[in-house]
Design a protein around this nucleic acid. Structure first.
Lengths: 326, 326
DNA sequence: ATGAAAGCGCTAACAG
DNA sequence: CTGTTAGCGCTTTCAT
C-alpha cells in the first residue's frame, strides 16, 4: 500500500478513514502520496474487515415490469448517493429461484435487502427471511410478527374510489382481475373493492373476481372466461401492468372495446400511457416515491433507526374509459 | 468454521472446492459436518483470496427505459445461472455519474462490466475504460483500438429497409430523430438512412435529420421544430423508445396523426406495443437476445476466450402507419 | 492424502 | 500522535 509516504500503514488507514488523532503534517503527506500513487481503497478488503459491504440486494419478480423498473431506478439513485450499490436479482416468478436469490444475498453479505416477494406464505420465503441477518424492506407485502421496513401503497383507497364511481354509474357486475390473496397488495385492493360495494349495500359479484396472478397469461385467460359468458360483466378492473396487458389482449380478441363496450379501469400506469391510453381511467401510484422511500427506510435502518412502514398514496384518476358499458 | 469434523481447515477447503487428492472417507465426513452445521461459504473471503468476485457491473443510462429493462432481465438471468450476480448502476445521462460508476465498479473488483455508454467520445469514459482491469462488453457502442466484447444491432439494415419503403411510397422529406453521432448505434442507423436515399439517387433531406439525444425532451423539441415549418416532412422515423415517446407527444400537441397525416416508423418497440401501437410500423430487435448475448460474451471472456462482437439482427416490420402522409 | 502456516488488503487494539 | 501486531474467512503452498 501507499505506506511509501514514509509512514506506517496504520497511519494511512487513519487518514483515509477520517479518523481523529492525526497531525496535519501526516494528513497532508499521506493524502499527497495516496493521490500521486492513484490509490483506491479495496472495498472488498474493507468489507471483509468491517462486515459491511455497502451493498443492497434488490429482489423482484421481473425488472422488465415497467413499474418495478421505475422503482428500481429511483431506489438505485438514492442508494448510490449514499454510497451503496444495488445487486439486482429477478425471481422469474419462481419461489425456488427467489429463495436461492436470498441465499446468494446472504452469502454475499449484503447489508440489506429490498424485495417484492412472490408470496408471503411460501415456506421457502419464511426460511429465507428468518435466516437473514440483514434488514429487510418489503414492497407491498406484509409478514406478521416480523419487525421489518415496508413501503405499502394505500391500494384500498384507489380501488375503492374507482369502484365507487363505477357503482354510481350503475355497474353491478364489475370484474376484478389481479394477483392472489397471498400478498398484501391484493388483500388491500380487495378491501377497497368490497368496501365500495358495502357502502351502497350492493352484494359483491364474487363470480367476477379473479385473484390468482399478476402475469399476463392468468389475466388473459380469466378475461376470456369472464367475458365469454352469456351475462358478461359490464366493467373491468385490472390490477398491475401484467394483468392489464393480458386483459387488453384478450378483450381485443373478443372484440370488446374497453371504455366503450365495457367500462374499464387500469390499476398502475405504464410507459406512454399518456400517449396511447389517455382515455383510460387509472389508479395511479408514483413509482419514484416507492423507490426513493424504500431506499430511505433501508438507509435509516442501517444507521440504527427502527424500521418503519411508509404508505404511498394511490389516486383514482377518472377518464373516459370508466364511462363505457352503460 | 466446520473444522469440527475433526479435521484441518485445509481439508475442508479442499473438499468444498472440489479438489482432487481427497479420500472418500474425508469427503463424506466433511460434507456431513458442513451440512449439519449449515455451513455457507463466505463469498467475500473467497473473493478476497481468489481475486474474483463473481460479480458483473451493468451500467446504463436508465433502467426505466423498457428496452434496457428487457436487456437487463435476460442478461441477469444468464449471469445468475452461471453463478454471477449483477450490480446495476444508472448513469442518469450524466457523463460524470457514468465515470463515477465505473470507478465504483473498479473498487468493488467486479469481474467484468457490461455497459451502454452515454458517449464513446467523452474523456472521462476513455479514462474509465483504460484504467479498467476487468473485461468490458459494450452494447451498441464501438471504441476503436480497444479489444473488447460487444453486442451490436444491425441497425443499418432495419433503418435502410424502413426508409426504402418510405421512399418507394413517394416520401422525400423524411424526418429522422434520434441520438447523437458519438455512439455507434446512431452512426449505423444513419448509414441505413443514407444508403436508402443513395440507392434511389435521391438527396438526403439533411435539414430533417435531428441527431442529438435519446431523451424525450430532445425529440419532443425537434419534432416541434421540424413539423411546425411551412413545408413539413411527410414522414417521421424515431430512434429509440425515448425519442418515439417525445415525438408522439409533440405530434399530439401539433394535432398531427402519425400514420395518417404523416407516415411514421418507430425504431424499437415498448410494452404493450401490440395492444396500442399495432398499426405502427417498427424496426424491431430482440432485447432478450441482446441481454443473453452480452452475458454469454462476458462469460466466455472470463473463461479465457477472446472477446467477440455479436451482431443482433433488426427487422423492419411494415404496418399501417408507414402508409400515411401520401 | 492430510496438516500447518502464510497471506489477500484492510482496520482496530495496544503500545510507545 | 504514530508504529506494531493481530486477524476478518478463505485458499494455497509446503511439509509431512
Amino acid at each position: 500500500v501507499a505506506a511509501r509516504a514514509g509512514v506506517a500503514l496504520s497511519s494511512v488507514s487513519r487518514v483515509l478513514s477520517g479518523h481523529a488523532d492525526v497531525s496535519a503534517k501526516m494528513r497532508i503527506r499521506v493524502e499527497e502520496a495516496a493521490h500521486t500513487l492513484g490509490y483506491e481503497p479495496d472495498l472488498l478488503a474493507q468489507s471483509m474487515r468491517s462486515g459491511a459491504t455497502r451493498t443492497i440486494g434488490f429482489i423482484i419478480t421481473d425488472i422488465a415490469n415497467p413499474m418495478f423498473a421505475l422503482v428500481a431506478r429511483s431506489c438505485e439513485q438514492e442508494l448510490r448517493r449514499a454510497g451503496y450499490s444495488m445487486i439486482l436479482m429477478n425471481s422469474d416468478g419462481e419461489a425456488e429461484t427467489e429463495a436461492e436469490n436470498f441465499a446468494v444475498m446472504r452469502r454475499r453479505h449484503v447489508d440489506g435487502i429490498i424485495a417484492s416477494l412472490i408470496s408471503e406464505k411460501s415456506a421457502s420465503v419464511n426460511a429465507s427471511i428468518n435466516s437473514l441477518r440483514a434488514p429487510l424492506v418489503l414492497l407491498d407485502r406484509e409478514i406478521a410478527g416480523m419487525k421489518m421496513g415496508a413501503v405499502n401503497g394505500d391500494h384500498r383507497k384507489g380501488v375503492h374510489d374507482a369502484v365507487e364511481e363505477l357503482l354510481a354509474r350503475g355497474h353491478r357486475k364489475i370484474a376484478f382481475i389481479t394477483g392472489g390473496l397471498d400478498v398484501f397488495i391484493t388483500r388491500d385492493r380487495l378491501k377497497g373493492f368490497r368496501d365500495a360495494f358495502a357502502e351502497v349495500m350492493v352484494p359483491v359479484p364474487e363470480e367476477s373476481v379473479a385473484l390468482g396472478g399478476f402475469d399476463e397469461e392468468f389475466s388473459s385467460r380469466e378475461t376470456h372466461r369472464l367475458f365469454s359468458k352469456k351475462t358478461r360483466p359490464t366493467a373491468l378492473l385490472t390490477g398491475g401492468v401484467g394483468a392489464t396487458a393480458g386483459a387488453l389482449r384478450a378483450l381485443k380478441k373478443l372484440e370488446i372495446e374497453p371504455g366503450k363496450d365495457i367500462a374499464f379501469v387500469a390499476i398502475d400506469e405504464w410507459p406512454m400511457f399518456d400517449v396511447f391510453a389517455s382515455q383510460f381511467s387509472s389508479v395511479f401510484r408514483d413509482p419514484h416515491v416507492i423507490g426513493r422511500e424504500s431506499a430511505r427506510i433501508m438507509l435509516e435502518v442501517l444507521s440504527g433507526a427502527e424500521p418503519r412502514t411508509a404508505v404511498v398514496e394511490t389516486k383514482f384518476i377518472s377518464r373516459a374509459s370508466s364511462a363505457g358499458g352503460v
